[in-house]
Amino acid sequence: MRGYILRRVLQSIPILIGISIVAFLIIQLPPGDYLTVYASNLRSQGEFIGDEELEALKAQYALDKPVYMQYIRWITNFLQGNMGQSFYWNKPVSSLIGERIALSMVVSILTLIVTYGIAIPVGIYSSIKQYTWSDHVITLIAFIGVGLPSFLVALIVMYLGVKYFNLGAGGLFSADYLDAPWSFARVIDMLKHMWLPVIVIGISGTAGTIRVMRATTLDELSKPYVEAARARGLSELKAVLKYPVRVALNPILSTIGWMLPTIVSGETLVSLVLGLPTTGPLLYRALITQDMFLAASFILILSSLTVLGTLISDILLAWMDPRIRFGGAE
């Protein structure tokens, strides 16, 4: 087990480095170096930036050095909490992204919980009731749900909401709490607004997980150990819940590994349509305005958190599965 954890942690280090390189590339790719952009941005706002200041910034970002030095400088700065300057907002990036990333993660994790909370029991039910009409209905809905592009669903839901239910234009807070400081009441208000985005983001994941859960449970239900449990005199419910479901849960839960990136990904797009105060809209604005420090920081932090989340869930799952815990099969 300890070996597994160590291996898993070591594995994620190159991934994190890779992510940081991609993020850095995103800063580098647009034509012109960002100081020029910065200066012209300031000038367009009527401010002036002196040569000395420019030189200082140049030194800070190692712009006179080769690219890999720039990368090293950027990433060390980043790790120390200095994520660079947002040209558009003219503020340090770190002051802009904290709450948004936190909210993104809250929405994503809540979606994850709701996804599994719905999909697992429904999938089990569907498999136990195989070939009954309720199973057929669930299968069909799940089948359609898998293919639904969440941001289009968001768009249509928004339209229906505005048109027929007189809902506001999305968001996570009601007007009273929009700019209020954090308080218990604000959290409650947020949770009340959370269900719609959570459902929209979760649709396809939930549908997919229902299908996987159903298929794996069906697979397990036909395994000899279930029959053996019945032959031992166990009640049907107990024989099913204690053995096959428990076994089927493992591969399902281990898909958290790829669910989290998918959900974070969906959250970015859906939050844009629904106007949530999470990463999506700000990242979008950053990209549109070529505010690359901000954009890259978002991508780096979002991806790193996803990788960490996956790492943690993998370790928890390994701990749950004796076959891995005792170093048997992978």
Binding site: Q11, I15, W258, P261, L269, L287, S303, T306, T310
Partner: peptide
């Protein structure tokens, strides 16, 4: 593994915006 562990849409957005 690397590619699959990052959220695709932010990545796509970043790459596309860098064009």
């Amino acid at each position: 593994e690397f590619i699959r562990s990052i959220p695709t849409i932010p990545l796509w957005m970043g790459l596309a915006a860098a064009l």
